[in-house]
């Protein structure tokens, strides 16, 4: 952790030195101090944009994780349905999720709803696939043992499969945090009423490079925070891993 911070700091120092020493024009690379200055100057605007993006990412993340896990459980309980649903899910998953973005935008409008749906879709698939393979990853002998003691399918699910699936599901959720932010930002770029992606796109159109970098900095900091939080929760509650 300390080494990572030291590394990050040295990257910033190098960056600053390069931008100032080589006198790089802002469209190539603005100096870190200028970017930070811009963030401070426009904190109200950036805060509002960040709040919107975070809301979309977090709500979408929650809906997606829940839906993914529930679908995985239902399909594990109904093997017959699973055999027909799984190929379709895999096919849908191989279409890059951004390809659906224009369609979702047309369906749900420019507001935050379309971003939430996109994030939920992206997160949902990842969590679903992770949870499904986690639910399968139980020792068949343990299943047989429980069954021989008269446990029904629900009991096996609750006591054996779910605890076994949680580590992998949590890993899927951790991977999804970054993706949730990316998808929210990408969808905002296509069309939105606010948010960091929208801010970045507007700044690109106005050729305001410092603003672009300021928004990237804010987005990265939030992503890191989000990732760190989920990682911490995972370490704390999935202790039996």
């Amino acid at each position: 952790m300390r080494r990572a911070l030291a590394g990050l700091l040295s990257v910033f120092v190098l960056w600053e030195a390069a931008a100032r020493g080589l006198d790089l024009p802002t469209y190539v690379l603005p100096s870190v101090t200028r970017i930070v200055q811009a963030i401070v100057d426009q904190r109200a605007l950036l805060l509002k944009a960040a709040g919107m993006t975070v809301m979309e990412a977090v709500v979408g993340f929650g809906i997606g994780s829940l839906a993914g896990l529930l679908l995985a459980i239902v399909l594990t309980m109904l093997p017959a349905v699973r055999r027909s649903v799984l190929p379709v899910a895999t096919a849908l998953n191989s279409v890059p999720v951004v390809a659906y973005a224009p369609l979702i935008l047309l369906w749900f409008g420019m507001g935050p709803e379309s971003k939430i749906v996109m994030v939920a879709l992206a997160v949902g698939f990842t969590v679903f696939l992770h949870a499904l393979s986690g639910l399968d990853r139980v020792d068949p002998r343990a299943v047989d043992l429980m069954r021989s003691f008269g446990a029904d399918r629900a009991a096996i699910l609750w006591r054996l499969r779910l605890p076994a699936a949680i580590p992998l599901t949590a890993a899927g959720m951790r991977v999804s945090t970054v993706r949730a932010m990316i998808v929210a930002i990408v969808t905002e770029m296509l069309g939105a009423t606010g948010g960091l992606g929208w801010t970045i796109f507007q700044a690109v159109l106005q050729i305001d490079f410092v603003q672009v970098w300021a928004a990237i900095f804010v987005a990265s900091a939030i992503s890191l925070l989000f990732f760190g939080t989920v990682n911490l929760l995972e370490k704390r509650y999935v202790f039996w891993r």
Partner: peptide, 22 residues
């Protein structure tokens, strides 16, 4: 592994697409 690798991890939390603009 101890100095550069954490930076790699951090770099991946950057929403790449934002960086795509640059």
């Amino acid at each position: 592994r101890e100095t550069v690798f954490p930076l790699f991890v951090i770099s991946q939390t950057i929403p790449v697409i934002a960086f795509g603009a640059v």
